[in-house]
Simulated assay, not measured.
Amino acid sequence: MPEDNMDTPCMVTCTAPMNIAVIKYWGKRDEDLILPINSSLSVTLHQEQLKTTTTVAISRSFKEDRLWLNGKEEDISHPRLQSCLREIRRLARKRRSERNPRSTESVGLSHKVHICSVNNFPTAAGLASSAAGYACLVYTLAQAFGVEGELSGIARQGSGSACRSMYGGFVQWIMGSKEDGKDSVAQQVEPESHWPELRVLVLVVSLIYTFL
């Protein structure tokens, strides 16, 4: 992340797809860490049709972390969202200290973030908006803070199925066995080209009530 002039916001924009479960997970063995009682499998939809777009801005001039969803400001203090923010910042600090162990400089890492997220499909309508939203949030934050490596475990802490939206094609969410959830991550099983004839239909219907 640029450090020379943090008065000018560092801005990153990314997109992420939604996914549809083929084999669902049936409950959680740990509600706080969002650890499932079984592994699951999903297919990731193409971003040309359904996606979340998230922009993250970081600046020393920001007084507090803020979040906008579909143009409306939301409460950023939600525990799951805060969990993702804390983990990305922790990894960013770790990465910087490993690069220069003697440095105590943390310019940028303590600065506040503004997050703007937009879905091009109905939110909270059974179309996995939280999966696409948290996957996009985590990936965009990682790009902004210079964090690399496995990110699906962080996205899982926001929304379980979000870990599967970190990859395209057919994706498995591995239930894992560790109590800390470090091995409960997603991995691509097959690319989207594995089943090129597959189509997913999302139908918008209107209900007409007739009273007799």
Results as ranks from 00 to 15, higher is better:
residue 200 V to T: 14
residue 16 A to S: 15
residue 69 L to D: 04
residue 53 T to K: 11
residue 207 L to P: 01
residue 131 A to F: 04
residue 67 L to A: 11
residue 180 D to N: 15
residue 129 S to I: 02
residue 5 N to A: 10
residue 197 E to L: 12
residue 207 L to Y: 08
residue 169 G to Y: 01
residue 116 C to Q: 12
residue 62 F to G: 04
residue 76 I to G: 01
residue 21 A to S: 10
residue 8 T to D: 11
residue 10 C to S: 10
residue 33 L to N: 04
residue 205 V to A: 14
residue 173 W to I: 04
residue 66 R to M: 07
residue 16 A to G: 13
residue 6 M to N: 09
residue 174 I to N: 11
residue 60 R to C: 14
residue 16 A to M: 03
residue 33 L to F: 07
residue 33 L to P: 02
residue 57 A to K: 13
residue 85 L to S: 04
residue 188 Q to A: 06
residue 197 E to F: 05
residue 11 M to T: 15
residue 162 A to Q: 10
residue 143 Q to I: 02
residue 31 E to V: 10
residue 146 G to W: 12
residue 52 T to K: 01
residue 203 L to D: 13
residue 120 N to P: 08
residue 20 I to W: 08
residue 153 G to A: 13
residue 75 D to R: 10
residue 105 E to C: 14
residue 200 V to A: 14
residue 9 P to E: 08
residue 87 E to I: 15
residue 162 A to G: 12
residue 63 K to A: 14
residue 166 M to V: 06
residue 140 T to W: 07
residue 79 P to H: 07
residue 210 T to P: 00
residue 22 V to H: 01
residue 41 L to D: 00
residue 29 R to M: 12
residue 78 H to C: 02
residue 162 A to E: 11
residue 188 Q to K: 03
residue 59 S to G: 08
residue 134 Y to I: 05
residue 49 Q to Y: 03
residue 166 M to D: 03
residue 47 Q to T: 15
residue 115 I to H: 03
residue 22 V to Y: 00
residue 51 K to R: 15
residue 49 Q to G: 02
residue 29 R to P: 11
residue 117 S to M: 13
residue 27 G to R: 07
residue 84 C to D: 06
residue 6 M to E: 10
residue 187 Q to A: 13
residue 56 V to N: 08
residue 90 R to N: 10
residue 23 I to G: 00
residue 126 G to V: 07
residue 172 Q to G: 01
residue 22 V to D: 00
residue 56 V to E: 05
residue 121 F to T: 09
residue 71 G to E: 09
residue 111 H to F: 12
residue 110 S to I: 07
residue 104 T to F: 03
residue 106 S to P: 00
residue 83 S to M: 13
residue 50 L to W: 07
residue 40 S to E: 06
residue 35 L to D: 09
residue 172 Q to D: 01
residue 200 V to Q: 04
residue 25 Y to K: 05
residue 130 S to R: 03
residue 153 G to P: 12
residue 126 G to S: 10
residue 28 K to Q: 11
residue 115 I to G: 04
residue 16 A to Y: 01
residue 72 K to G: 00
residue 192 E to W: 06
residue 39 S to K: 06
residue 104 T to Y: 05
residue 193 S to N: 09
residue 80 R to W: 01
residue 41 L to N: 00
residue 41 L to P: 01
residue 105 E to M: 00
residue 83 S to Q: 13
residue 69 L to I: 15
residue 202 V to N: 10
residue 180 D to I: 04
residue 164 R to F: 05
residue 201 L to M: 09
residue 36 P to W: 12
residue 75 D to C: 04
residue 104 T to E: 12
residue 147 V to L: 11
residue 146 G to Y: 11
residue 186 A to F: 06
residue 186 A to V: 06
residue 124 A to S: 14
residue 80 R to K: 13
residue 110 S to F: 06
residue 180 D to H: 08
residue 149 G to Q: 15
residue 208 I to W: 10
residue 40 S to G: 08
residue 144 A to V: 07
residue 13 T to D: 07
residue 56 V to I: 15
residue 100 N to Y: 02
residue 143 Q to V: 06
